[in-house]
Design a protein around this nucleic acid. Sequence first.
RNA 1: GGGGUGGUAGUUAAGUCGGUUAUAACGCCGGCCUGUCACGCCGGAGGCCGCGGGUUCGAGUCCCGUCCACCCCGCCA
Length: 605
Amino acid sequence: MSTAQPAFLVDLKRTHPCNALRTSDLGREVVLMGWVQNRRDHGGRVFIDLRDREGLTQVVFGPELNAEAHALAGDLRPEFCLAVAGKVVSRVSSGGQANPRLATGEVEIEAARLHIFSRAETPPFPIEDEIDTHEQLRLKYRYLDLRRPSLQRNFMKRSQLYRATRDYFHGERFVELETPFMVKYTPGGARNFLVPSRLNPGRFYALAESPQIFKQLFMVAGFDRYFQIVRCFRDEDLRLDRQPEFTQIDVEMSFVVEEDVYAIMEGLIARIWKDVLDVAIPGPFPRMSYDEAVGRYGVDKPDLRFGLPLTDITALVAAHGGANVPFFTSTLEANGTIKALRIPAEHASQLSRAELDKLEEFAKGFGAKGLARCKIGPAMEWAQTPLKAINDSPPARTALNEALGVAPGDIVFFQFGAAKNVNAVLGALRMHFGTRFQLIDKAAWKFLWVTDFPMFEKTDQGGWAAAHHPFTSPKPEHVQHLGVDNGKVQARAYDLVLNGNEIAGGSIRIHQRDVQQKVFEALGLEIEDLRAKFGFLLDAFKYGPPPHGGIAFGVDRLSMLLCGADSLRDVIAFPKTQKGTDLMTDCPTEVDAKQLDELSVRVKV
RNA sequence: GGGGUGGUAGUUAAGUCGGUUAUAACGCCGGCCUGUCACGCCGGAGGCCGCGGGUUCGAGUCCCGUCCACCCCGCCA
């Protein structure tokens, strides 16, 4: 009986992982442990593929090799966990063929002993890379999903990413420091998860959205260079690339300006790409202002792997008095923006009438009222378009054609109205076409620093909110506008963008109390309010705060890009669903009345 | 808060105009097989058609509601 072989694990240790053996190991006595990938039973000859996180090795059983093991091998089923001891032999010399698709395909193990550690029920889905299973099921049986080689590769890469990060920062004299997860609740920004305090009835901790203030206090404390790989929590709606708890590489440095931060982070990226993918990422990365990014690409995180830039034609149209084109004149009257996206003829010709019509629905999904377009005719006239009145104003048409750089056969898409909506729609449309026309080089790594962000954004209530966060330093030359003309103030903030994804964001912080005070005031925060919320920070800044700045990377997104994964859930071991539930543990749950009572919490539902 | 897609055997899917016993593939179970590697051959089992109502002689199919998962908008300082 198999259970009567306790020698395994005690005096028979695993000698190799399952991807290690080659013809150079022929004749060696080895012990492998792992899971059954597959069994091919020919009666007098039984083959199994034994799998561990490294790979596969074929094991062969035969009555003349070991009768007991051969008999037991008949019982084996996928995902049984077992140990095999035997000799490495050549498949060809043993009368078979090599399998060129396996790293270990020239050899096999002749099983002299077999020990079944545990049997397995039939798994709900096969443990292999190419599975076509609803994610619901994968999440319920996450421990089986995680057995799949592709996910194991992802997590081994993520582990390397962590190692590269720690190695790099320690080499640059950063100190790894921890900050609390249970912190003071501050309204504004992302919603917080709350933790009731049993010892302080009626009071709550918040789970930290980020270690922002604490890392600044590390700078006040003189740690100079800090980093941390840290979990953060935000109670916002979820997406493909957003989880309620996520991980950041959090960084803060004293005595730096923007260029110092860029240089250190470019070094980090180069190190990570070298160590994880063995790819060289030369710096420095290109820079682009927020205005240019939004102007040319419609978004503050442009994907530079392909072109298709947007063109703002508002001024040109205005210069021609709207050219008697209804959409143009009404937009000008409303002080709106007019932008265009040109699709060159070579791509435009692929678009059927039906597809063009469907694009309008696509645009509406991003807030468009419609999607005006025109086709450039042989004589450069605007055809098939609600803007056909332009053809009655040849000078205006010529000027626009020139600005757009169009040629016959091109199709141009237009948006009119508030700049924010115009950019959102055309930016999304541009990305759509990038994919649709396969313009995106999948192997490219296009890094970009986006700089010169606005300091504030208008809120729906007509007030101002911090675009980054309220500790971001305004540009010194803009401090005079604080509270006077907030829209003019630019921040010393920056984002690192990779292939159209924001992978990091940060800023040079305010270290002068008076400037901090002015920013708070510009945001409309009351003084007492301020003292209550951020008094400790203002107090800290009384005691010689150094100039400082930092950045935080979204590690999950970074891992996703490094792994080429389609979803954040493929690089987070135990992710939540879009409703924030865990299908494996069935969480969150209700709690019993006694527990609630102890916490002085009453539940309304 | 809003829009979209999906839920039928263990899994992935098909299921026409509402009509007989709900199909297929893979998987699973039993048997045979000494060179397979998507092994092969023979045989077999397996269904709350997400859930709850309704219409109908009759519902997987039509209607209403609801739950779950996924994608997107809003949201994410």
